[in-house]
């Protein structure tokens, strides 16, 4: 029982991690409905970018974010324009292409680095706060805060700004949006770019915790797909809540059941929730069809 609050804290921090990874995916997969298997690779690129800044210029990863995030936003926009845009009427082929991108990006990094593990050890990454016997790692707390800020920012952006409304409009009905004078392709390009930029942000913030490998992106993104679906496609609040559900489930299953079984438990919980609410926790009924009807 003495560990109970430690496990809760752990689950919340882990939830922050999953929520942060899911924010970008939610924009790409949830809002503009592109099944992007290579999302994890953008996260991985973010990690390597932060590492590169750290090892060559001594740049703290948190400062490196100001370079890495715009760079990955730009890369995402280029990828959208060159690969996803020509396939906008072929969503299944977009899936296929994104798998090609996954192989391409992952193995370019493998070829360059030889797959050797890379780590950094910033002074900040060793700080832990202890409050009433419960431990919080400072790097994980930052991630949690970033997840809240990013989700909140994205939510406000989608709800309040003209451009955010344009994104939602395009996602819901491309034809109508176009008739309203929205530049559809440009809107999608920006959404995709912001999504990959957010993946990069997650990567940067995770770098102080992990040893980098070219395959590491997949470790986060499989769960993130579950989080986005669990929360309800496109719901920013849903992704946040979904992240915490997955994080807490993982912490409790790992500590009280068996660390080897925690992934199975997460996905069983995931399926169970979907069976009760087939369109996700905060999704609208029929949400799975929105945007797809209009794409041909």
């Amino acid at each position: 029982m003495d560990q109970f609050f430690n496990v809760v804290a752990l689950g919340m921090l882990l939830g922050g991690t999953y929520a942060l990874v899911s924010v970008g995916l939610n924009l790409i997969f949830g809002v503009i409905r592109i099944v992007n298997f290579s999302q994890g690779e953008f996260l991985m690129l973010g990690m390597y970018g932060a590492y590169l800044g750290y090892s060559t210029m001594g740049l703290d990863p948190y400062a490196g974010a100001f370079i890495v995030v715009p760079a990955l936003t730009l890369l995402g926009m280029v990828v959208y324009w060159l690969v996803m845009r020509p396939l906008q009427n072929e969503p299944m082929m977009q899936v296929f292409a994104s798998f090609g991108l996954l192989l391409l990006i992952q193995n370019v990094v493998l070829a360059i680095t030889g797959g050797v593990g890379m780590s950094m050890n910033t002074p900040f990454s060793q700080v832990t706060l202890t409050i009433a016997g419960v431990q919080f790692s400072a790097t994980r707390l930052i991630i949690l805060l970033a997840a809240l800020v990013a989700a909140g920012g994205l939510g406000l952006f989608l709800a309040k700004t003209n451009f955010g409304q344009a994104i939602r409009a395009v996602a819901q009905d491309r034809m109508a949006a176009q008739l309203m004078g929205i530049n559809v392709e440009r809107t999608f390009m920006w959404s995709f770019g912001i999504g990959t930029g957010l993946a990069g942000l997650a990567g940067v913030l995770l770098t102080p915790i992990y040893t980098l490998s070219p395959q590491i992106g997949g470790n986060f993104v499989m769960a993130a797909f579950a989080v986005v679906v669990l929360g309800g496609l496109g719901s920013v609040l849903g992704a946040l809540v979904g992240g915490f559900i997955v994080g807490l489930t993982e912490a409790f299953a790992g500590y009280y059941i068996d660390p080897e079984l925690k992934h199975a438990v997460i996905f069983i919980v995931f399926i169970a929730v979907l069976l009760i609410k087939p369109s996700g926790l905060f999704g609208q009924a029929g949400a799975e069809e929105v945007g797809l009807r209009e794409q041909s």
């Binding site: 690969v83 020509p86 296929f96 090609g100 992952q106 493998l110 070219p214």
Partner: peptide, 23 residues
């Protein structure tokens, strides 16, 4: 090169999807 074959395969998949949109 480690991963060299998958770099080429990845490129072919991307190009293949672009040039054969209907399979």
């Amino acid at each position: 090169v480690p991963g060299g074959n998958l770099i080429v395969l990845g490129l072919i998949l991307v190009l293949g999807s672009l040039f054969m949109k209907k399979g």
